[in-house]
Computed example of a mutant assay.
Amino acid sequence: MLASMVSLSNTTAFQCCNHHHKLLQIRASSAAPGVDLKNLESALAKKDSNAVKEALDQLSEVGWAKRWSSQPYVSRRTTSLRVLTTLGIKNAENLAIPSVRNDAAFLFTVVGTTGFLGVLAGQLPGDWGFFVPYLIGSISLVVLAVGSISPGLLQAAISGFSAVFPDYQERIARHEAAHFLIGYLIGLPILDYSLDIGKEHVNLIDEKLEKLIYSGQLDAKELDRLAVVAMAGLAAEGLQYDKVVGQSADLFTLQRFINRSKPQISKDQQQNLTRWAVLFGGSLIKNNKSLHEALMTAMSNKATVLECIQAIEKAA
C-alpha cells in the first residue's frame, strides 16, 4: 500500500548541514520581499485547515501563492481507456486492478526460504533432523494465520519487505507528491504528510468537506474534486511505470467518497468517474511536471509542509 488520503536514515553531519542550507535557500528565494509567511507557518503548526486556507488565500491575493487553488473548477466528462492511453498512462486497462506484486513477493520469499532451510535442516543428525525442519516449515503456516487473524500486521510486514524493490521509495515519493500537488492546485489545504514505509500518506482536507463526507452529503461537484485528488497518486505512477503498485488505497478512498455522495451514482458512472479522475489528475501532473519533481525532491528530503509549498511556488 503506497497511499491513503484524509485522516506522507540517519545522515552525516555534513549532509544535515547541507540539507539545512538548501532549505534556507528555498525559504529565502521563494518568499518575495515583504511577503510574510508567519500566518501560514502558525496555521500549519496548529494543523488548522481553515487557517491554512485563509493564509494561502491571502498569499495568493498578494501574488505569492500563485499555484494555490489555481485549478478550482473541475467538471466530469465521459472518458475512455483510449484517452488515458493517449495521455501516456501505461496499461490503462489494469489501473483499477489492485496490485499483488509486493504481497506475492513477500509470501514466495517466506515459503521459498523456509522450504530451503527445511531441506538443509533435514540433514541434521538424530531427532534434530526431524524437529528442526518441522519447526521451520511451521513458519509459513504462522504467517498465513497472522494474515487471517490480523491482516494489518501482515500488511505492515509486507510494506517493510517491499523496501527491497529498487523503485519502491521513488514510487512512494512520486505517488504522495501527486496527492499533495493536485490537492494544492485544486485548493485543499495540506496539513502534513509522511513517506515512511507503512505510514505513507498526505493529510489534506478542509472542515467543510469533512462534514459533508461524514454526513454522506457530498454533491457531484465536491465528489469530482476529491476524486481527482484521490486518483492523483495512481495517475502519477501510471505515467511513469508499466505497473501501478499503490492503487489499492486510492481506489478504497475513492469508493469511500462515492459511498458518501448524493445522489448515488451507478456502477457505470463510478467506472467513468475513476477514468476521468485519472485523466484529469494525470493531465495536471504532466502540465506541472517541474512542480511535481520539485515537490518530490522536497518531500524526499523530509521538508516541512511550508517548505514543500515554497518548493512548489519557486518551481512555478
Rank of each mutant, 00 (worst) to 15 (best):
I182Q: 02
I97K: 09
Q58N: 09
A13P: 01
L188S: 01
R256A: 04
D250E: 15
L107Q: 06
V119D: 04
S70R: 13
N94K: 10
V83T: 07
V62H: 02
R174N: 05
K66G: 06
C16D: 12
P125D: 09
E237Y: 03
V229R: 04
I182V: 15
E170K: 12
G126I: 11
A277W: 04
L153V: 09
I186H: 02
K46C: 01
K53G: 00
G118W: 12
Q247D: 01
E93H: 11
I258V: 10
S248V: 09
I182P: 00
G238C: 07
W64S: 02
I172G: 00
G126E: 06
I285F: 04
Q270W: 04
A311L: 05
A315N: 08
E307Q: 15
T86L: 08
D242V: 15
N203Y: 13
S261I: 08
H175V: 07
R76S: 05
G183H: 11
L204P: 00
A65V: 07
Y184R: 10
S29A: 13
T12S: 14
G112L: 13
N39T: 14
S30A: 15
A31R: 14
N102F: 11
K262R: 13
S159N: 15
K66D: 02
V146W: 10
E307R: 15
Y193Q: 05
Y168E: 06
A311S: 15
A177T: 02
P263G: 10
V100I: 14
H179S: 03
T114Q: 13
G233D: 09
G88W: 15
I312N: 01
F161P: 00
I136E: 02
Y73M: 07
Q255P: 00
S300L: 05
A316Y: 10
C308S: 09
L191Y: 02
L84H: 03
L8C: 01
L44G: 00
K53H: 05
L135S: 03
